[in-house]
């Protein structure tokens, strides 16, 4: 699908700005890639240069290696590429996540990447932008997705941990290693007990701390010799760690999973965990639709998620929306992004 006359077009490599000669979140290696955030479905290795937000630089290097060529700019500061102005603005998704604002002679496009509206102690809050064309994700773009406030969810997690602790069990909470895990750790009451981590989580923790994010003390599970220390502790691990090979080291456990998908009972049951905490770094239905209207955009391109449904609904509200097939996956249940 080529939109030859438009400022951004979809190519086989991803979103492309012909006038500025750069790609946004390409899924094939290109010369110049502007990156919204460092989750794997938005970040491809092998590009010649990367443009990323200042606060996202560390994480991008952690994922792709120190040797990549990165230019980083603070949120809100514009740079020019062949007469096209690019600026990055907080998307509230994870540390360093950005919406990409592209402006050519007053025509403004915004690529949302992944975003959430709810505050998050570990990253800058989402910034609403005005634009003519908005390219939005739709991971949770159905009205069945309505998040409770995170305070309620954190209370639930705390309560679950305390109960397990009283029973002498280890609480294992599965959450994405990048972003979700740190958001949870930052929101926990560390005075309850020890917070332990899977290696993948600990790596990112280090990265967050180096970027100036305050997290309570955590300890990498593999460095613990005395198994007594597992009793009553909370372990944060990526969903893929949920295998007998990894969990056998803990004695009595209670397992839980934190994800927006836990909103649906079938997902919760299939996952075979005792608790499902509905906590997502994406917007719920209201977050998505409010944001879309707030941009004032007439044209809305809807990417990964429930695109067909969102597009139909937006068109019924009088907007000019269409579904754009991309290779982004959003929050998926059984992969680590």
């Amino acid at each position: 699908m080529v939109h030859a006359s438009s400022l951004l077009e979809l190519t086989e490599f991803g979103f492309y700005c012909r006038r500025g000669d750069f790609y946004i979140d390409p899924w094939q290696p290109v010369n110049k890639a502007v990156i919204t955030h460092a989750h794997a479905d938005h970040t491809i290795a092998g590009c010649k240069t990367y443009l990323v937000s200042k606060s996202g630089e560390n994480i991008l290097k952690t994922r792709l290696g120190d040797e990549i060529r990165v230019q980083s700019i603070p949120y809100g500061k514009g740079i020019q590429l062949n007469g096209v102005q690019i600026s990055l603005h907080p998307a509230g998704h994870i540390l360093g996540s950005a919406q990409v604002r592209v402006d050519h002679q007053g025509e403004v496009w915004v690529v949302s990447g992944d975003y959430k509206i709810e505050p998050d102690q570990t990253c800058a809050p989402f910034e609403p932008l005005r634009c003519h064309t908005f390219i939005t994700e739709s991971t949770f773009g159905l009205p069945i997705f309505r998040w409770q406030s995170q305070d309620e969810i954190f209370d639930d997690i705390t309560c679950w941990w305390k109960t397990n602790r009283a029973d002498g069990k280890t609480s294992i909470l599965f959450a994405y290693a990048l972003g979700k895990a740190q958001r949870i750790i930052a929101g926990l009451d560390a005075s309850i007990g020890a917070i332990l981590t899977h290696g993948a989580v600990e790596n990112i923790n280090r990265c967050y701390r180096e970027s100036g994010i305050k997290l309570p003390n955590t300890q990498y599970v593999a460095t613990i010799e005395d198994k007594k220390a597992f009793e009553g502790a909370l372990v944060i691990a990526p969903p893929l760690a949920d295998s007998p090979a990894w969990t056998k080291k803990f004695h009595a456990v209670s397992k839980a999973f934190a994800s927006g998908w836990m909103q649906i009972r079938g997902n919760r049951r299939r996952r075979n965990v005792e608790r499902g905490f509905v906590l997502s770094d994406h917007s719920d239905w209201k977050g998505l639709t409010d944001t879309i209207f707030e941009t004032g955009a007439e044209n809305v391109w809807v990417t990964h998620g429930y695109a067909a449904e969102m597009v139909r609904w937006l068109n019924e509200q009088g907007l000019n929306a269409k579904a754009i097939p991309t290779r982004y996956t959003g929050e998926i249940e059984d992969t680590d992004l």
């Binding site: 069945i144 997705f145 309505r146 009972r265 079938g266 449904e309």
Partner: peptide, 22 residues
């Protein structure tokens, strides 16, 4: 929400009682 969007949601949830409650 329009009826079709309810049905689309039901299709994803797979359970009528739950879809309504959500």
């Amino acid at each position: 929400i329009p009826a079709w969007l309810f049905e689309a949601s039901y299709d994803v949830v797979g359970d009528l009682a739950e879809t309504i409650s959500l």
